[in-house]
């Protein structure tokens, strides 16, 4: 037998080590964790303080009521609605295009596809979701716009349709995969209950699976819309830089994000109204997406079906 006594050695070792180290760990981790909170505070502080700076110079009322955005004019006018309308046009087109297709794909993957088909299709969707938006922008201006122009010559080089369609393409994978997750979490026994009564897969999907998964599906759509609102490069490249509040979808427009990119890629003199207007627009954009995210989280919590 050995002469070592393990228990004794452990005791000896223990007394050497400071128990303080062990207590310090959660504190250190908490400090690091607070960086994420600091990031939020930083964003809010930046947006709010610089926006206040902006509203010191320009009219608060005009910003929220006017639909004319002419920052370069000698009598500049900052009416956010021109930019908001630009954003909404693109987002509405993207949503109309992406929601049916995204849901159709989700239904196919969750209800109809074999395991093998899923194994092939899902990575494709992942790749599609991973393509940088600047690449989508290139695709919009070099492929989609010329294609649309060949169908209908009244469409100008920069327009809402092309940008909207490509933003739609960008959010399809998100809707498809999040909705598929929601539908897959409906237990199979529920599906069997319906199929066992002689219902077709389609009837089972629409009358049982979709209603049961509706909260997750709505949450995924809202999240995707939020992503579309914040999408920047596609609209900067393909939608143009003409702020206007018209409903025309065939001519140039500007979105909130497009404006930020246009100003920052040129040079807005630091300290000018133009510079601070970036943050007022950024604040508006942040509020839009923030509200959407809150709705998404609320919906997915509130209406979750418990089995």
């Amino acid at each position: 037998m050995s002469n070592y006594n393990i228990q004794e050695m452990i005791q000896k070792n223990k007394s050497n080590k400071g128990a303080g180290f062990e207590k310090l760990i959660p504190v250190i981790l908490l400090i690091i964790t607070s960086i994420s909170v600091l990031a939020t505070i930083g964003i809010l502080y930046t947006l709010i303080s610089q926006s206040l700076e902006f509203f010191n110079r320009e009219s608060f009322v005009q910003f929220f009521t006017s639909a004319t955005w002419q920052p370069y004019s000698s009598e500049p006018e900052f009416g956010i609605w021109a930019l908001v309308m630009g954003t909404l046009k693109v987002v509405v087109i993207a949503t109309i295009f992406a929601v049916p297709i995204g849901l159709g794909a989700a239904i196919y993957l969750s209800e109809y596809a074999s395991e093998r088909a899923k194994k092939i299709i899902k990575p494709i969707l992942e790749v599609l979701a991973g393509i940088p938006t600047v690449v989508y922008g290139f695709f919009a201006i070099n492929f989609v716009t010329p294609f649309l122009q060949s169908l209908y010559s009244g469409i100008s080089l920069y327009n809402a349709v092309s940008a909207g369609l490509v933003v739609g393409i960008m959010i399809i994978p998100m809707i498809a995969s999040l909705s598929e997750d929601a539908m897959s979490s409906v237990p199979n026994s529920t599906r069997e209950g319906s199929l066992g009564l002689g219902a077709t897969k389609l009837e089972t999907t629409f009358k049982v699976v979709l209603p049961a998964a509706i909260s997750g599906i709505i949450a995924s759509v809202v999240l995707a819309v939020s992503r579309a609102i914040g999408e920047t490069m596609i609209v900067s490249i393909a939608a143009g830089s003409t702020p206007n509040a018209s409903l025309d979808i065939t001519s140039s427009l500007q979105t909130m994000t497009g404006f930020i990119v246009q100003i920052t890629s040129g040079d807005a003199a630091y300290g000018s109204s133009l510079y601070f207007s970036l943050f007022a627009v950024g604040m508006t954009l942040f509020l839009f997406t923030f509200v959407m995210n809150i709705i998404s989280q609320w919906v997915s919590k509130r209406f979750r079906e418990e089995y």
């Binding site: 990031a39 964003i43 610089q50 914040g230 920047t232 970036l278 997406t289 989280q297």
Partner: peptide, 28 residues
């Protein structure tokens, strides 16, 4: 709970807004 909600909200902030944060905080 607050930290968790904060992180999921941070995930939803558009990248261009992070750019504004960088511009005002780090650059300036």
């Amino acid at each position: 709970d607050f930290i968790k909600v904060n992180i999921s909200n941070l995930a939803g902030v558009p990248s261009v807004v992070f750019g504004l944060l960088g511009l005002a905080m780090f650059v300036r």
